[in-house]
């Protein structure tokens, strides 16, 4: 059980990264972005291209760091992929969502368009990499530490949790301490008043997509490191992402962080009683229960 909770925290940290972006975008643009999960996949596959393709080609060493399953290639690929997916997210906004904003389209139109964007992104991955599961380092043995009580922990997983904590702390400091971060919170709070104050809300929207996309990429890559890559990985994350976002009160990024961990742990612990294939159903059930008994989420009302 302790082991499952630990695995849940690892999974939860990845869900949190995606949920933060989903919540940020909702907070400012008020629409459910169904393409967010696929941005995670794009991040994972961009890193795959860099690790096994480009960085190998330019001769970056393949050696791994100590007990970890990756080395310099991944360390370089990680931030580059985050930037790349930030770019993809911003590009999608410029060519698609901004046009819909200009037309004052309703939330359903936005949601359906994002669903279309999700399919496009996924099909691009399928064209280049096929439908099979892939690994950053195929055939790599992944040793685990044996802790008391028979708990097995892989060094990669410890690394993932630490890295996610660093990313979340950075985001927190950005939102609380910087002018742009404060303006993002202000725009999410009241976009009309932000405009009246002279805040360039289009620039805020670009930052929002960039940060959301970068964090999604981080989540996707870390899932690839922990488990595997698959073209449907991000799409399959969508339900846990929405569950975490709604649980933590949609639009509230701190809620999304906590919600992500709760959903991750709940999914993993459920495998003690249910078949692992029911994991998405667990997230879905939590989401429905929350919508029925506390639709504003556990943090609803505290902020406003």
């Amino acid at each position: 059980m302790v082991e499952l909770i630990f695995y849940g925290i690892v999974l939860g940290s990845i869900i949190s990264l995606g949920a933060i972006g989903l919540s940020l975008v909702y907070g400012i643009l008020r629409f459910a972005n169904f393409a967010h999960g696929d941005l995670m996949s794009v991040g994972a596959y961009t890193a795959l291209f860099l690790v096994t393709g480009f960085l190998a080609w330019i001769g970056v060493s393949d050696a791994t760091f100590g007990p970890l399953s990756f080395g310099w290639r991944m360390l370089i690929a990680f931030p580059v992929s985050m930037l790349a997916v930030a770019g993809v997210a911003i590009l999608l906004d410029r060519v698609l969502y901004r046009k819909l904003r200009a037309k004052k389209s309703g939330p359903v139109i936005f949601a359906m368009s994002s669903l279309g964007a999700a399919f496009i992104l996924r099909m691009i991955i399928l064209i280049f990499w096929g439908a099979d599961s892939l690994f950053y380092r195929p055939g790599m043995l992944r040793p685990a530490y044996e802790l008391p009580l028979g708990v097995k922990i892989r060094p990669d997983q410890v690394f993932i949790i630490i890295l996610v904590c660093v990313l979340m702390t950075t985001l927190h400091l950005f939102l609380q301490k910087t002018k742009m971060g404060k303006a993002m919170r202000a725009t999410s709070d009241n976009i009309e008043l932000a405009r009246v104050s002279g805040i360039d809300t289009e620039r805020i929207i670009i930052w929002t997509w960039g940060i959301g996309g970068a964090l999604a990429a981080a989540g996707g890559i870390l899932y690839g490191v922990d488990v595997q890559l698959h073209p449907y990985m991000g799409w399959n994350f969508l339900i846990p992402l929405f569950a975490a976002t709604i649980l933590g009160s949609i639009g509230n990024i701190y809620g999304a962080m906590v919600g992500g961990f709760i959903i991750g742990v709940a999914q993993q612990v459920s495998t003690a009683f249910l078949m692992p294939t029911y994991k998405p159903a667990v997230a879905f059930t939590i989401m429905i229960v929350i919508l029925l008994i506390r639709p504003k989420g556990i943090f609803g009302g505290s902020e406003r």
Partner: peptide
Amino acid sequence: VDNIFTSL
């Protein structure tokens, strides 16, 4: 109305 940022 709505003339302040309530969460700030």
